[in-house]
């Protein structure tokens, strides 16, 4: 027991130190790399808190995709490019009192959260699990019981893609200084492994940790790797734009269709008929995972392709 406690303490200290490095390291590059390692350690924390679904998504999205986004943005900016703000010196009394106030408010937040009654929706979810079409509670909550959240979330992602595309043409990725023929080959060799892991996670999602989010994240991370190596030229081609747009919208469209179908069949928006719930959830999961993967790749272009 003490060994486990020691591990928790060390993990917490490591996470805190990495957050410190992320925020206050002198070099920005070091900050970004610290942030990626921070994401990996945080996913260990999720495992310790018995949230394996979040751990999977965090490792792929929080550490992988977000880190890659930051790194590629960093590569396109010079040091002098980014606008700087005037910052008060550390030792000024105004700074110190503001910092103390911030910490006090945070402490207050912690105490307030700690005093909350323990959330007790587990029993309510368990009672509905039989009719929900998935035996894993998190998947059931995401895609059936609180499907509206997931629908809106896919909509948020799609609007983020639309927003960044409306800013202008895609920023061309920096080609490596030396042409490396091995890089695209390696990326396409690795891609089947990404596909396999994503399909496995998707299939597992109905009864165990996994599901559309981790699967989409893994698929997207693999796609970004191939994109970086220059292996995905169809996204930039004029005659394939309709396919790209169709796939981007697929998740949201499928979800909406299902919600409206539920309205027609059962009279309630977003309610799935219990008899078909399992098959319908699987269908939506596949569509959502594909869309999430492609939207993560689309973020990476920072603008509209083929314009």
């Amino acid at each position: 027991m003490t060994l486990v406690l020691l591990f928790d303490l060390l993990l917490a200290l490591g996470v805190f130190w990495l957050a410190w490095q992320t925020l206050f390291a002198v070099s920005l590059f070091r900050g970004v790399v610290s942030f990626m390692v921070f994401g990996l350690l945080i996913s260990l924390v999720w495992i310790r808190l018995q949230a394996p679904d979040i751990a999977l998504a965090e490792a792929a999205i929080g550490a992988g995709v977000t880190g890659a986004l930051f790194l590629s943005a960093l590569g396109r900016l010079d040091d002098t490019d980014s606008p700087s703000f005037r910052v008060l010196p550390w030792t000024s009394p105004l700074f110190l009192s503001a910092a103390a106030l911030t910490l006090l408010v945070c402490l207050w937040l912690g105490i307030a959260v700690w005093d909350l009654p323990a959330p007790g929706l587990a029993a309510a979810v368990d009672a509905e699990l039989e009719r929900a079409g998935a035996t894993h509670p998190v998947t059931a909550v995401l895609l059936n019981l609180r499907g509206f959240d997931t629908l809106l979330e896919v909509a948020v992602m799609l609007s983020a893609v639309i927003f960044s595309w409306s800013l202008g043409a895609a920023v061309v990725p920096h080609a490596p200084a030396e042409r490396l023929p091995g890089l695209p080959a390696l990326a396409s060799l690795l891609h089947p492994v990404f596909l396999l892991v994503a399909a496995y996670l998707l299939w597992r999602g109905s009864h165990a940790p996994g599901g559309a989010f981790p699967a989409g994240a893994v698929l997207g991370a693999g796609g970004i790797l191939t994109l970086l190596a220059g292996g995905v030229d169809w996204m930039q081609r004029d005659d394939r734009q309709w396919l790209l747009r169709l796939l981007l919208v697929a998740g949201l469209a499928l979800f909406l269709l299902l919600a409206l179908g539920g309205l027609l069949l059962t009279g309630t928006f977003m309610q799935l008929p219990p008899a078909w719930a399992a098959e319908l959830i699987l269908l939506v999961e596949v569509g959502t995972a594909l869309s999430i993967a492609l939207m993560l790749m689309a973020f990476y272009l920072y603008g509209e392709p083929a314009r």
């Binding site: 949230a51 979040i54 998504a57 509670p137 059931a140 995401l142 959240d149 997931t150």
Partner: peptide, 12 residues
């Protein structure tokens, strides 16, 4: 499971 689902949504 509800906060877990919320955090998954939040990450995305």
């Amino acid at each position: 499971p509800v906060p877990h689902a919320m955090v998954l949504t939040g990450i995305v």
